[in-house]
Design a protein around this nucleic acid. Sequence first.
RNA 1: GAUUCCGUAGCUCAGCUGGUAGAGCAUAACACUUUUAAUGUUGGGGUCUUGGGUUCGAAUCCCAACGGGAUCACCA
Length: 505
Amino acid sequence: MQLSEHEVLRRQALEELINLGINPYPADLFEVNDNSVRIKTDFEKDAAHYEGRTISLAGRIMSRRDMGKAAFVVIQDSVGKIQLYIKRDDICPGEDKQLYDVLFKKLLDLGDFIGVAGYVFRTKTGEISLHVQHLKLLSKALKPLPVVKEKEGEVFDAVSDVELRYRQRYVDLNINPHSKEVFIQRSKLVMSMRNFLNSKQYVEVETPILQPLYGGAAARPFKTHHNTLDMTLYLRIANELYLKRLIVGGFDGVFEFAKDFRNEGMDRFHNPEFTQMELYVAYKDYYWMMDLVEEMVEKICIDLYGKTEVQVGEHIINFARPWKRFTMFEAIQHFTGIDISAMDEAALRATAKELHVPIDNTMGKGKLIDEIFGEKCEAQLIQPTFITDYPVEMSPLAKKHRSKDGLVERFEAICNGKEICNAFSELNDPIDQRKRFEEQLELGKRGDEEAMMLDEDFLRALEYGMPPTAGLGMGIDRLCMILTNSHSIQDVLLFPQMRPEKTME
RNA sequence: GAUUCCGUAGCUCAGCUGGUAGAGCAUAACACUUUUAAUGUUGGGGUCUUGGGUUCGAAUCCCAACGGGAUCACCA
């Protein structure tokens, strides 16, 4: 591998360090007793508190301004940056000035980790800084980080190459504070949701990722093989059928933050592996679940931002309860002016054509309705909105509507023109469920690659009896995109799927 | 999978209708003991993603491959 000029120089520095008896990767612990952000806020509030105290910090050198026998260095720790003032005669009080003249001036580079100890003070220009009295190299960096400069909030030479940001996330996180912030928010989002569900006494569980039959959603799976059992296994596309088995088993409420895998196209809303939170609660229905979703998402938003509104692109989205609720028919009527609720297949087909909705002859009644909704309504729903009562054909795991023929008790929450969750009153009639699976098998035979498989064990479980249950699947990545105003799913995934890099030899 | 745009130094970018590569930062050397996009002086650094083609001559024009973005299709 061809080394760049920078890399050659850093390797030379590494050797010189070793020759000087300085371990560039020391094993002994460097004790840290504060961090960059806390120092700045605390010193601002109460400078006297820092009187006579020795503070030790560790971090990465991000910039340096060398001025002969003194220098200003900015280091970055996990929470932020702070300036150090390093004076030669302070870190080298005796005759031997090697630590400053050689180690600091010649052998330390941007990106190296150092540990420092000293006292906090304010410089002439007012910046709270650490006056360094002890300096130690903690880890040498052999590759240079891109240098991003900043003045009065304006950022210069920010890395704009998204490919580098996604492939080398470790670099991105170091040089792009916003990027790191997104992942901290994601962590808070998950924590907030988990706390909410825990507070309701639901049980967090783990179910198989490797499944002999994939089910619970309409999607193409990843297929793999188990050698010892000599059998085909699939990476789960959903965990729905396993969680419902647990409801059969007597849990009142179970949930799982699940990585699911779908072998389909990739774009700014889709990654082959993604995260869903699925929740099933016994003795509840989809109306109840709508209330819970509103309550949960509103709470998450407040936990993250202290308010219910977030800026998403050009819109301000408000998650305050209650959210708007439309049946699918009402939504279509609202956005097209056409009432399709009583239409038969032929009339629907004619309406779709009239509305310039692309359709084909294989589409049945349910699919036609779904297409019209998808084309004419979904993108226009910016504020969080529940769409309810879907055609039965699209929802083989949902319970038939208590009063509306041909529909199921299902809702999706749409926000910023995209689905963020999907829920239903779960189908718990084993006879009906078998029929629905059989219809799926028919679709599969006709070439629908996303048709569901018939899961005999799941049916057996239902035959033992499942209480009435409300179920929910919530796209964590999608929700995170909205709550962090991220344009692409890749911005909320630490390591989004990428094609292999050319060669790295 | 389709359409379209992009690929020049470690990073951010110039490079016109083809004439043999440029800046800022970073880096190296020297100076500077309160600077902050530090500063001053002087250097080094590029198979212009890869492979073909057109041409006397290609970073530039054409074709293909690879990688990335956007839009569309499938989907969450």
